[in-house]
């Protein structure tokens, strides 16, 4: 379980996250929605320790990562996978090297075993024929799928997605949504997805949290979100799908 308590973060005196309290139960998919610049990505990056909060705690299985040393944090990160908004593939490496890097660094698996696992993950994201290509030769959707294969290579317990469908066409967005759901069901992971794509949020989410100006203004199930009376929540959902 991931438990976030009173988390606050500011940049140059400007508060970005203010007293965030969230609980993500094991095996669930939480979607964090909100306007661009509301602090969603800062929250996601704080959860994996890429940013250090000013105050508050982030408990991963009851261990506070905000108080951990660098080596303890690296140990916790072995349980995480993260898909970045721009995929963040290592452009000097082939797809196969990108996906297999963590196995190379953290396990004693043989080259053949690593290759087998990489093939398995690439096949899972539907890209089993592009292992020798470089990221610059791939489309945006392919990069995201390779990024997902890389995030899943260590069989993580938690998978974080930063804007997984942003910048993709509707067909590719649908494929990514399906991949997120398949990953969830096949690997039994806990997922946190940051997005402002409400269609994606309703498709893949179990719980939706909405952040406005660094504060959580709503947290509940998809049904609760859709039937919410909160003015901002209603407006956000309606504007996303067009007035209806």
């Amino acid at each position: 379980m991931i438990k976030i308590n009173n988390l606050s973060k500011s940049f140059n005196g400007k508060p970005v996250l203010q007293n965030i309290n969230l609980t993500i139960p094991d095996g669930k998919t939480m979607v964090i929605v909100g306007q661009s610049g509301c602090g969603k990505t800062v929250l996601l990056r704080s959860i994996i320790g890429l940013m250090h909060p000013d105050s508050g705690s982030i408990l991963i299985n009851n261990k506070d990562i905000t108080k951990m040393s660098q080596s303890e944090l690296f140990q916790v990160r072995l349980d995480f996978g993260m898909l970045f908004q721009g995929a963040a593939l290592f452009d000097s490496m082939t797809v196969r090297e990108n996906v297999g890097l963590a196995l190379n660094e953290h396990t004693t698996l043989s080259r053949e075993q690593i290759s087998e696992k990489v093939d398995e993950r690439l096949s899972m994201v539907g890209l089993d024929t592009i292992g020798d290509k470089y990221p610059s030769e791939l489309s945006g959707g392919m990069k995201k799928r390779v990024g997902l294969a890389r995030a899943l290579i260590m069989d993580p317990k938690y998978v974080l997605y930063d804007e997984p469908t942003t910048g993709l066409d509707p067909i590719m967005s649908e494929q990514i949504n399906k991949l997120i759901m398949d990953t969830h069901s096949q690997l039994d992971v806990t997922s946190i997805i940051v997005t402002h794509d409400m269609h994606s949020a309703f498709t893949v989410g179990d719980i939706i949290a909405m952040i406005v100006d660094g504060r959580v203004i709503f947290c509940g199930t998809v049904d609760e979100f859709q039937s919410s009376d909160h003015e901002y929540v209603k407006r956000f959902a309606v504007l996303q799908f067009g007035a209806s």
């Binding site: 990056r45 994996i48 320790g49 890429l50 690296f74 140990q75 990160r77 072995l78 995480f80 996978g81 993260m82 970045f84 908004q85 721009g86 963040a88 593939l89 290592f90 452009d91 890097l101 963590a102 660094e105 953290h106 890389r150 995030a151 260590m154 974080l160």
Partner: peptide, 11 residues
């Protein structure tokens, strides 16, 4: 391009 962050997330 967040590649260094990606390395960190891979521990």
């Amino acid at each position: 391009t967040e590649q260094i962050d990606a390395l960190e997330t891979l521990a």
